[in-house]
Design a protein around this nucleic acid. Sequence first.
DNA 1: AACTAAGGTTTACAATTGTAAACAATAATA
DNA 2: TATTATTGTTTACAATTGTAAACCTTAGTT
Lengths: 129, 129
Amino acid sequence: MDLPKITDSEREVMKLLWEKSPQTANEIIAVLSAKMQWSEQTIKTFLNRLHNKKAIRFEKDSRSYLYYPLVTEDSYYCAENKSFLYRVYDGAVGMLFSRFLEDEMLTDEEIEDLSKLLEKKRKSLEKKD
Amino acid sequence: MDLPKITDSEREVMKLLWEKSPQTANEIIAVLSAKMQWSEQTIKTFLNRLHNKKAIRFEKDSRSYLYYPLVTEDSYYCAENKSFLYRVYDGAVGMLFSRFLEDEMLTDEEIEDLSKLLEKKRKSLEKKD
DNA sequence: AACTAAGGTTTACAATTGTAAACAATAATA
DNA sequence: TATTATTGTTTACAATTGTAAACCTTAGTT
């Protein structure tokens, strides 16, 4: 049941489908050929590969095909996060966070939001004591 | 001047050198063949590729070669973070953080540490007002 | 029923990556 | 000086990935 490996390019297709599903090949091709400068054929390849690895499925509705994600956004991001965390940081979440913070890639607002998130998280943990 | 692309395997070599440098081929091979189950030849390949892409350099000390990192740990992690953030989250730091938090991959202690980090960050920003 | 168009499937091909064998250079040693 | 051990360099090869052309299937249309 482990998630199929999704490449950078394929992820762009998944993002579209997570945003809205189902979508026809046409819609997907329209968006991605503009956004990513991919040829129609290239996008078809990604759809096909995603289908082969069971990350998406499609239904045939007469002449148009409707695509649905099979891998959920949540499970994907969770896996991707874990993979990054372990590959790059050997699992040290603290290091990851502090590096992101140090590199000053956050606006005041983002820091505010994060504080709130953390506060909430801390409270939800306290309850369990 | 952009950083050379460092692959997953190559990163293991870099990690060693960031931890301590210089190190001889021997030391590196000893550690990584044990830790990663790589053959000696495989590790030599990575050293060579890293050298080719100017991520490391070496000095010849009679019969032993001393390896040094050329890419700094900081610049590497900064680039890697940015790359991940943009590839996966389209640059939305907030999303990245909240997902990491939601996925409950943090211990109480880590959450404590993070709060402190954030607090510090916030203060350093306030000063600039 | 033959034709056409929409969209899926097969094949292709180069670059990158993991993995490693074979080869080469050279400093220490016999 | 010939030998050997250490360590770097070249070559190899399959899998993955980005990129796309060529081909095939089938549902509408004439």
